[in-house]
Every structure is written in structure tokens, then in C-alpha cells.
Design a protein around this nucleic acid. Sequence first.
RNA 1: GGGGGUGUAGUUCAAUCGGUUAGAGCACUGCCCUGUCACGGCAGAAGUUGCGAGUUCGAAUCUCGUCAUCCCCGCCA
Length: 587
Amino acid sequence: MHSLRSHHCNQLTKADVGKRVTLMGWVHNRRDHGGVIFIDLRDREGLTQIVFNPEICGTSHTMAEHFRAEFVLHVEGEVSARPDYSINPNLPTGEIEVMVDTVKLLNNCNPLPFQLDEADSVSEELRLTYRYLDFRRPQMSSILQARHRVAFAVRQYLNSEGFLEVETPILTKSTPEGARDYLVPSRVNPGNFFALPQSPQIMKQLLMVGGIDKYFQICKCFRDEDLRADRQPEFTQIDMEMSYVTQEEVFRITEGVIRNAFKAGINHDLRLPFPRMTHKESMDLYGCDKPDLRFGLELFNATEILKDSNFKIFNTTLEQGGVIKGLMYPGGASFSRKDLDDLTSYVGNYGAKGLAWFKFVDGSVQSPIAKFFNEDSIAKLQSLSGAKNNDIVFMVCDTQNVVNQSLSALRNHLARIGKMIDDSVFSFLWIIDFPLFKYNDEEQRLESEHHPFTAPVVEDIDLLDSNPLAVRSSSYDLVLNGVEVGSGSIRIHNYALQKKIFELLSLDEYAINEQFGFFLDALKMGAPPHGGIAPGLDRILMLMLGLSSIRDVIAFPKTQKASCLLTKSPSAVSDRQLKELHLRITK
RNA sequence: GGGGGUGUAGUUCAAUCGGUUAGAGCACUGCCCUGUCACGGCAGAAGUUGCGAGUUCGAAUCUCGUCAUCCCCGCCA
């Protein structure tokens, strides 16, 4: 036996009675009866009750009188069957106990900043400050174990499909477009900076040019943007790229990855293939490109029906190119005036200047603005919305963006407060046929909807000059329960087309050469057609495990201000370090 | 950058309308207890009410500022 330890704390059963065993672990709980002392010994795997009886070993018993929570013990003794009346059915090892005759105190432990069994109610702030204590809790341990199983299953599956895992640099090049970069100053090259990768996008495309054919990497990505419950400045992607593929093949592989991940993570069998929806349909019906399909509440467009009214606010907005969309909420006629005020201020967060509502009750309509519409319009509205007795219809009239954003948010909000969501469902969805570009009003130029390496749909290439905003791209998003969990595309592999896209994005010649010259060169040297995708491992795990924060699936996450409570980073550095890096702090 | 929530003992919470010595559970310390498993019993220690101003006879409580943390908007190719 090479290991000092003979068993983990979840292993011993009645079949082991009589064996001499050695366990290592923490004092989880201690019950001192004056004579006999019981301790629940804990390791990563579970609990075992160990018994210190003065009649078995006086020395051990005397030592055990001074043991406290989270002391680290090495115990040896004989496995003994518990008397019938003291079997603990809540414990896998509840039928046995270990009668300790030899104990070594491997380490003692100060009183903890929080009790492990109360961590559910303790502040996350405290848990993050002492994250290593948090890990000792079975809940956290099982999350990290699930994360390991998922990552391992992903590697196994992609290996079986012929993928190579290749590491790409963390110190890489800052490029325009996209998120704000984390920068690393170069000591050797004064005034120059590396950037941490927002994703290994260009590198994986270069691997395709290099004939790697099928690449993957479970890799860290870095984006210096503000945080959310599902956004961390560093996060992990399952990054993939394949040569000579169609969208169909990317979907097949991705679905295989996801299915294996769910099997390994929580032993859940997902049904394949995942449903698909075009970007246009998603925007029309749900007002966003990541709809949660676990509930209905589809939007409808009421612009035609309501355009001829005496309601000035609607008319003015419509004249300026606005639209009217709405959604029907069953049973919503019971909302109080205060409820409706709250919902109005809720959509206000998304730019809506108001929230019109129509309650349908006992054959009549109740609404502060009903008087502006004729009966025919209201009848059509009721019919279009599908409202029955005691239902409510919400309407927003504004620019298309504001209407979609506010109603999409309202839709999710209503489903939450109405408890319309089945938490046990995993609703995957592919969104396809994204537009290639969107228009940035502020900078008055085209921007990539996905990223600048995304190939346009072949039939739409002719529109690049005449009507670029109508060009569809061959990009796709994977959505799970209303959360974007992956994004990818078939890439441009043609030099001239890539250069043209850069130009359409208003990157000047100098920037193109300076930032992307090496990449354009590669496209000139026999780049094969290729495409890929990058599912977000953290978000998938969060949803798989039914957690509400990405921080719960990351061992050492950052706070909302992007700092680490454990290490207190980021932190100031010495003048000497700054000098070496040729940096001066200005404040 | 903006909106909102939270901050009281190690910890989780309480403290009536602004009122006199800021309480309780768990943890901690000491003592008792040989079949517990949230063991039990007795006793004890433990507070810059996040921090700083202000209002008031009097502030955990009201006002302003500030810090930390959480949620959201902006931002996230």
C-alpha cells in the first residue's frame, strides 16, 4: 500500500466490518458525551463517524477532547457495525463506524469566519474571501466535480471525432472591434502592449490554414467589460474550428458536445437535434435573438391595426417610423394599478416611454386609452392577441429597437412573476440567418453583428454594396433557456472578400494592414474553407446545475467590480515595476 | 457612466414613532455528561451598528457624502 489512506470517507459499509482502516479528513462535527466522543470525519467524498472510546484507547480519547471543527486528522482503527438503534439512514456509511485506536493530529484549525453548514445563508462576499473554505462544502465540491466531468467528457468526445486540442497564446495582439482588451505592457518593447485574447478567433483560423483540420481548446477568454450575473472578465470557452464544414456539421458536432456534457455532468439525456429558428422570426416573435422557449407569451405586431387612431402619442411615433407591438398575458386583468405602474417602470429601463394596456373583462375593455380607438380596432386587437376574458394585452409603441427590447424583457419578467417557467426543462435552440451587419448610429458606420471574419451567405454577396444591412451571414447562436451559450459561423477564407468586409466596416487601409495584415497574408496562401463555434462552458454549467450566477461554477471568480476578494487583486505595484515597464500612473 | 437593494457580535438575524444598559440562535471559552449524529445541561466572553459629516436634549434608526457587495441599464465583434 503506497497511500497512507486506506479508504475515503464515503466508502465503508457493513461489508467492511472487522477491517482495519486508515482515514484522513476534517472534523466535520463533534459530539462529546464526556465518556465516548463521536466525530463525523469528512473528506471530499463523504462522512464517516469515528468513535473515541476511553476503553479502546485512552490516549486517543484524551486527544479527541481537544479536537474542534475542521481539525485535520489521521485516524486508524477497526470498522465496527453500529448497534441497530444507532444506524444513521441519512449517511451512506451510516451502518458502520470506526473505533479509533490511533490518531494523529495533522493540523489544528482556528475558529472559522463562517460555519460550513451555514454557508447557504452566509454572504457571498465572505464565501469568496475564504473561497478555500467554501470548497470544503459538499455543494461546492460537487460543482467542481461536475465541471471536471463535463470538461473531461468534452475532451473525450472531441477526441473521438478527430479533434486536436491546441493551445494558443494568452499574450497576444490587440485588435480593433469587439470588447475592450485587457492589456499587458511589454518590458522589452517600451510603449507596446500585449492583449489577452477575447477569444482565440484568429489563431484557430490560422490553425485551419495550417492544416490542423479539426481544432478545439478549452480556453480562457478575457473581456474588460462590466460584469453581470452571467458575465465574468475571464471565462472559459469550448473553442472549436473545423475545415471543409457546413453549418450542419458544426451543429452535429456541437450537439454531440452538449449532449455528452449533460450526460457527464448531471446524467441527463438531451434530445437531438436542437430546434432552429431564424433571427428574423426570433426578433418578430420574441423581440430578441435569445428567446426563452420554455413558455409562450409571443409578441404580435399591431402597427397595422392601431395606426388609425386619435391617440397622438402613437401617431407621432408611427410617423417617425416607429412600430407597435404587444403581448397578451393570460389572467392579467387582475393586475392592480400599482402592478401596472411597476411594469411600466420596468419597461422604462429598456427605453420604453410608456406601457399601454387593455384589460378584457366580461365583454368590455378597460384601458385608460381605449377611448382613442374605435371598436373595430379593439376587436381586431383582441382577436390578434388571442385575449380571452380576464386577460390583459400590453402594448409598446416606439422605435423597433425599443419595442423589441422592452417587450422581450417584459415577456421574461411576466413569465418569472407568473411562475410560468418549468425549471426542470433544458430548452436549447439554434438561431440562424443572422444579418451580417448592424448599423452603429453613434459612429455612423457598419459593424459586424457577429465578428468581421463571418462569411456572408453566398446568395447575398451581391447585396454587399447595394444593401449591406440586408446581407445574411452564415453565423449561428446556441441558446439555452433564454441565455446565449454559444456563437459561431462559417468563416471567410477568401482574401478579397475578407478585405472587402474590412473596408465595409470602415477600417482604413493602414489599420487593416497594421492589425490584420498577417491574417490577410494567410488567407492568400491556400486557406481552406472553415467554420466553428465556441460554447461558453461556465454558462452551460450554470444552467445545467440550476444555478443563478456564473460565479458559482468558477473556482475563484471576480466581484462585480472585477476584483478578487481572496487575493485582493488588482492591486498597486511598486514604482520599480512600473519603471521597468515604462509606465507612469497619472490618475 | 446611470438606476435600485443590502451593510448591527466570528456568523445569521432582532431592536415599536428617534429614547435611556443594542438582544437572540449558531460558533467560541470553561465545567458536567458513555450511544450521539442539528447530542444534551450549566456558566461566560464577545459590538467603531461599514466609514465620515450633519440634524437633534438624544441617532443602529433621519439627512448628505463615501466605501464594499449584489441586481439591472449602458457596455459585452
